[in-house]
Design a protein around this nucleic acid. Structure first.
Lengths: 336, 336
DNA sequence: CCCTTTCAACTAAACGTTTAGCTAAACGTT
DNA sequence: AACGTTTAGCTAAACGTTTAGTTGAAAGGG
């Protein structure tokens, strides 16, 4: 390995001078500067980031923690994070939690050990997230995207899930549906979508039948079972609103399996707009949750926080606007 | 930040003793060991990996370079890599190249700067890859997965793409198709699939018509245009074999758009078996290219290479077996 | 011509570890 | 009792940087 020492020797200058040239942060005469630059080239010297990190307490590493990587929603978000990280000369340490708070906590710990400069957390939304507490107490710059603990609001980039619920539900109501079921989970994003759903129903005077709130926690198998149960009881709503596209997929699959036509017999609207909903068996009507944009903005605010350093700064939470994406899984309610 | 010094002071021992306790690599009397452990707990000390890396020249960081992250093939591979990395206490630095050799080279350089211990490269297959050369010359342990430069064979985990071509084509021939088109690109994986395709045709005495090799380089738009051209010339094969699922998707979409039925009028088989092919508009029949397994095995061999350290060792290339996945995009050729 | 100021370039300490090599206590042998 | 051997635990150097503080030559002022 060629070190700064070798360069210094070759250029017949001191280590400090080489450092000054590399970092361009002190005046160095043209003559020496040139000698140093030549030496660097000839030796193919590249500064050792590990040593530099040790001295500077800055690794230029950003930790990114996502729930899953096989659900296309997250890769899209990751892409957003990566694009801005790359532009700012950060590298990403990426890992997944499978939505397990303990794993998440351990990962945050591990990242701290690696000396990451900041972290983009796209995962848990527990009432009081241990991970977030840890980050706070260790004073590690962080921004939460997609989800956040209920109490937490600073430095986060979220989708306005309440509005997602409203938009989807209102769309269904506009299509004259009057018996709509909600398929969701426990997480904040889902709870908010549920609130938006209920509110839109109330606002338009649409009744919410008894067993129309179905909690499946993003588990496709559960969705399948729950909808199947409805089918077997012969108690079907005319439309479903799912709090995620993957749950909408699962819903459509049971319906199709059991001989219903989507959207002719039953409409289904999702939310998220993952890349694949466009090409799903039935192209999915859904509400776009801006995964890429959350990643992009999330990383951007992280980096601006990182740059202000001591400013101890607060950036107001972003709440992104969802938007309706009409495709083919919904249609006007049939007569009778 | 609490350092090893603080622990040493608190436990009234030397730094060296604390280090010995942490690393458990020297005998320390039970008494001192306990004192040290208590101090560590009370101070919540965690060793600084950056410092450790500097001394040890080992970061416990693995670089992973993939082409894209929004194509579900790669996340699946990543998942394989991550699962074994996690188990072995490595963290992953992940980035994407968009299939640009220059970007890839720069990324490899960057990762070297970060001191990664090894890299899993899942990307380019140039005749002579600068990136691979760089890794070789810097003596960084690396394994190539999914693709490799033509000349390169060591330490790689590849899918047997020739066989992919054979399997897909033979399946189509078994369905009595006698005019089959191939949709592919320039990359080795595609070239091998093409060879397998041609060989299977020859072996079964099926004629290959003139304009039946369509090069689209994984670009959905190009696929669309090329197939469209065929349609407009009214010169249609009875089946398509695409060298990737995404190209198969694009093919199916034009066909559907132009009023063909898949598979009733025309059969399409893909290759890769990305997660979504199962739920595509027409559930895609395809040949599984074992993305997860390549990632898993790739990382596993990387880590075993890392552990042997000085052994300068060579691990024979893995060539994974592809397997046919029958779904709904192919059927027996219609009479006439 | 001497004294002060300026500043390019240098020396050395520091970042938080690991580890080679040393010290001295404890023990066994004769 | 004297000596050698063993070894628990220590000291200090090293990893490759950055940077505070120092040096000394040149420039400027009186």
């Amino acid at each position: 390995m060629v070190t700064i020492k070798d360069v210094a020797k070759k250029a017949s200058v001191s280590i400090a001078t080489v450092s000054a040239v590399i970092n361009n942060n002190k005046f160095v005469s043209d003559e020496l500067k040139e000698r140093v630059e030549i030496a660097i080239k000839e030796l193919k010297y590249r500064p050792n980031k590990v040593a530099r990190s040790l001295k500077n307490k800055k690794t230029n590493l950003i930790g990114v923690i996502v729930t899953e990587i096989t659900n296309p929603f997250y890769p899209l978000m990751l892409k957003g994070v990566e694009d801005v990280a790359k532009k700012n000369n950060y590298q990403l340490i990426v890992c997944t939690t499978d939505d397990d708070p303990q794993k998440e906590y351990d990962l945050v710990q591990s990242m701290l050990d690696y000396g990451i400069d900041g972290v983009v957390l796209a995962t848990i939304d527990d009432k009081e997230s241990k991970s977030v507490q840890l980050l706070e107490q260790e004073e590690i710059v962080h921004v939460l995207i997609n989800r956040s603990p209920e109490v937490y609001s600073d430095n986060s980039v979220l989708i306005d899930s309440y509005k997602v619920g409203e938009i989807a539900t209102t769309y269904l109501i506009d299509l004259e549906h009057d018996d709509i079921a909600f398929i969701g989970g426990d997480r904040l994003n889902s709870r908010e979508r549920e609130k938006g759903f209920k509110n839109a129903l109330a606002k338009h005077g649409v009744e919410l039948k008894d067993n129309r709130i179905i909690k499946c926690n993003y588990d496709a198998e559960k969705v399948y079972q729950n909808v199947l149960q409805l089918i077997e009881q012969d108690d079907m709503p005319t439309a479903f609103f799912a709090a995620s596209d993957t749950m909408a997929f699962a819903t459509i699959k049971v319906l199709l399996d059991k001989g219903f036509r989507v959207p002719q017999d039953i409409s289904v609207i999702g939310s998220d707009n993952i890349s694949f909903s466009e090409d799903f068996l039935i192209p999915l009507t859904t509400v776009d949750a801006q995964a890429y944009e959350m990643g992009r903005l999330g990383c951007e605010t992280l980096i601006s926080l990182l740059n202000e350093s001591e400013n101890n700064s607060y950036i107001k939470p972003y709440l992104l606007e969802p938007s309706l994406v009409v495709r083919k899984s919904c249609q006007k309610k049939m007569e009778g």
